[in-house]
């Protein structure tokens, strides 16, 4: 019994000492990362209408072909100065009508980043229209900025769940899906919301069951993409905590 106590005592003292080392080193890690805070820069570099022909929902309607960049559409999207939010203005949607636009966010900083959340904020117009909107997203990534899109087989098919959700829910599903695949955008890397060879999109659809009163209405809302620093602390990586050489399934 005394021997087990002695062993336990040695272990307890060791743990106390390791705690001191942990405190010192974790602080060092923090200092290392905060030095780089000035270079944390995730930027929406592209937000345009999609003019492609892909029409999964069998909806060949005018909303599909607006060009947001040339300003000749009734709809509009603007990248805000903060670089991480866009303002979307939708006009004249009809029940079942779909609008889709490309969006690419690039890591122009020097530290890896992870999408933490996307917020939807109503700004102006008919709020009921926003509440009746459904959305779905698709995504693809170039993690390290080498110009190559990561193989879909590796990071999922990018369809998220393929279902229409209320706008905020659709974007939460997107965040969850990216986090499930542990997507961390390295410097110069980028995240596009899209599939295959397309740049990507968020699709908005006015619910088929929406009342006709919502036709010819306008709504303006803001989408804010909140990115967080992916720390260099190895303990933050859930794949490193389980030992082994990583070759076991």
């Amino acid at each position: 019994m005394k021997k087990t106590k002695l062993i336990a005592l040695i272990m307890v003292i060791s743990i106390m000492m390791v705690g001191a080392g942990y405190a010192a080193w974790s602080e060092q890690i923090f200092v290392d990362t905060t030095i780089k805070t000035g270079n944390f820069n995730m930027e929406i570099t592209k937000a345009t209408v999609r003019t492609g022909e892909r029409q999964d929902d069998n909806l060949s309607h005018e909303w599909h072909h607006f060009d947001w960049t040339k300003g000749n559409s009734k709809n509009d999207v603007t990248i805000n100065q903060d670089g991480n939010s866009v303002e979307v203005e939708l006009r004249n949607l009809y029940p079942g009508g779909v609008v889709q636009f490309d969006m690419t966010t690039t890591n122009n900083g020097t530290i890896p980043a992870k999408l933490k959340s996307v917020n939807v904020q109503y700004l102006d117009g008919n709020k009921s229209l926003l509440n009746s909107l459904k959305a779905k997203t698709t995504w693809k990534v170039d993690i390290n900025g080498d110009g190559k899109i990561e193989p879909m087989g590796k990071f999922g098919n990018g369809h998220v769940d393929g279902k229409w959700h209320p706008v905020q829910s659709a974007l939460s599903v997107l965040v969850d899906d990216l986090n499930n695949y542990n997507i961390v955008i390295e410097p110069k890397g980028s995240l596009s919301l899209g599939l295959d060879d397309e740049d990507g999109c968020i699709q908005f659809k006015l619910d088929e069951n929406a009342k006709n009163a919502l036709q010819d209405q306008t709504v303006k809302f803001k989408l804010t993409f909140n990115w967080e620093q992916w720390t260099t602390d190895p303990n933050s990586n859930p794949y490193t905590n389980y030992g082994g050489d990583g070759d076991i399934q």
Binding site: T4, K5, V12
Partner: peptide, 9 residues
């Protein structure tokens, strides 16, 4: 570290 040692004791 501690759990197995306390289990042992």
């Amino acid at each position: 570290i501690l759990c197995p040692i306390f289990f042992l004791m």
